[in-house]
Amino acid sequence: MTIYLIDDDSLGNYLTEALLRLENFASQIRTYESAEDALEELLQAPVPPRVIFLDLNMPVMSGWDFLEALAPYRPRLLGQCHIYILTSSLALSDMEKARTYDLVSGLIHKPIDREEIRAIQAELTTEDHS
């Protein structure tokens, strides 16, 4: 299973990756400090990543910009690629906005913890068996 971590904060990416590895979340974790780079890779990859952890507040291309850029590929991604917004923002408006994207499976406040990782794992397993 391949997953993407997109966060301009390298420390954030390092931390999330370390926590995911401790839970054996994925065989391949790819980290990006630029949403543009991640988008480029995603569009070239023959199979989209199973999960994307997406930061919102990033220079040049924000998390929201990234979601807008994915809109044309929604049919191909829906059900294949789960996007979790991973943000330090506590703003309710961000949660409201996240709900309007059906590619977004959930919003997690940083730092991600063990329970949250296991809950995602459980969801993915359920999906695999259905």
């Binding site: 904060d9 420390l11 954030g12 931390l15 999330t16 370390a18 926590l19 401790l22 507040n57 330090s88 923002s89 506590l90 703003a91 406040h109 940083k110 730092p111 991600i112 913890d113």
Partner: peptide
């Protein structure tokens, strides 16, 4: 307020995360 809270919380969230990671 929005910007400051966000930018204050980002490194704090990291710090919390690393502190938790250390125990493991």
């Amino acid at each position: 307020t929005y910007v400051v809270s966000h930018n204050l919380r980002a490194p704090l969230a990291n710090a919390t995360g690393f502190a938790g990671l250390l125990s493991r």
